[in-house]
Structure formats: C-alpha cells, structure tokens
Amino acid sequence: MSSDNTTDGGSTDALTKTREARMGAGLDDRFNSKLREAFGASPFILTKFDKFMNWVRGSSMFMLQFGIACCSIEMIHTYAIKHDLDRFHAGVPRASPRQADVIIVPGTIVSKFAPRMKRVYDQMPEPKFVVGMGSCTISGGPFQEGYNVVKGAEEVIPVDIHVPGCPPRPEALIYGVAKLQERIANGESSPVTVKPYELEQFGDMERDEVVDQLADQIDEDTLAMRYNWADSP
C-alpha cells in the first residue's frame, strides 16, 4: 500500500474528485454506517475464521417453532409485531428441528412429553442451543409439586440460557436471546450437562463406558427412556 493511497480515502485530490464525481459532493451516504466509516475505502477486516464463524452463528439464528404451554404465547408475541425478534437476528422460525439452531423451550414439561422433546432436540443439527423460557423450565415452576411434572428442562436436555418469569415478558426473552448471541459470538459452546455423567455412580468410568452401560439398560422393545436419572428405578 503506497503512501499516496491511504485508507482514509481522502488524502489526494484525484481520489476525492473521483469520489465526488461518482457520488455527489460532501460526505457520501455510503459511509452512513460506523463500520464502513472505520473501514474507509478498503473494506477488509482480518479476523480468525473461528471468530468469524461464531459471529455469524450468533447473528443469524434459526429458531425452532416449538410451543409447549403458556410461555409459548409470549414467545409468539416476541416473534410477532411490536417486539419482533427478527430485528435481533433471531427471528426465522423453522418448523422442522432439522433446520433449526436454537430451541426455545417455552413451558411446562411433563412426563409424557419429555421423551418427545428429547427427540426433537436430538434431531437438531450441531451446534445447537437451548433457551429455557419461564420458571417451568427452570424448576417446574408453579407446577413443581405435580406428580407428572418434570422439574425443569435440564432433566432432559442441556440448557444454555434460563429466562425466569411466569411468563417472562417478551422483552425478557429478547434479552435472553441476546445474551445467548453474545455467548455464541464469544465462542462459548453449549454446556454439556447430560445428567448421567454427573452422577457419582458413574464417576470413575470413561465416557464411552457410561454410554455402553446405559445402553444395556434400555429395553429394546419399548425403548424406555428415563427422564429423571437420579431417582428412576
């Protein structure tokens, strides 16, 4: 890069003139964004590929269209007019889990639904992220005492962000999603909190061994799934 062709783009008369001839006098509108202004005439940045990918990931999230209970109404409101999650690069609802990056779990999970939800989660391609919406996904919420209620989404799938509230306001959900984007952009991957590995009885086994041992316990006919590893029979 020669000295008479500096990046501020305006040091030589010839260049300025060309620019003005092209775009009219004065500071042109092409520099209306701060980013462009910083780049000036050479719009290149150097970055690490991973970092770039993370930024892209966080800035273009496909959300799974997934409604469970009351919280899903507020979730729809978050997608819809007024709150419009799309403005925050996270508003493309996908009906199929195979096309989604993020699953917002909006509601109470009960025993009958837990295996289904696990399945939907398993169908999502990596990397995938989970936002738990509402008290129900944290602890079972107002229904915690219920005989049929799974005490939080973490019993079933790992959760990245918990948004408390019953239901959380759309603003809160947007904040939660924004936090998730921030984390993704910073390269923090999703926490793997698959319960069995944390249990003492599996403590000194290799990871593969655990899988083998657990696979042995699955009844092949019914494909029984336990949703509560700590206390299931």
Binding site: R119, Y147, L223, D231, P233
Partner: peptide, 12 residues
C-alpha cells in the same frame, strides 16, 4: 407420588 416412573417412547 415419590415413586419414580419410567416413560417409554413408542413412536420409534
């Protein structure tokens, strides 16, 4: 209520 239960996923 505290008795643990097993739930199956028949839809496989």
């Amino acid at each position: 209520q505290d008795r643990p239960q097993v739930v199956t996923l028949g839809q496989h």
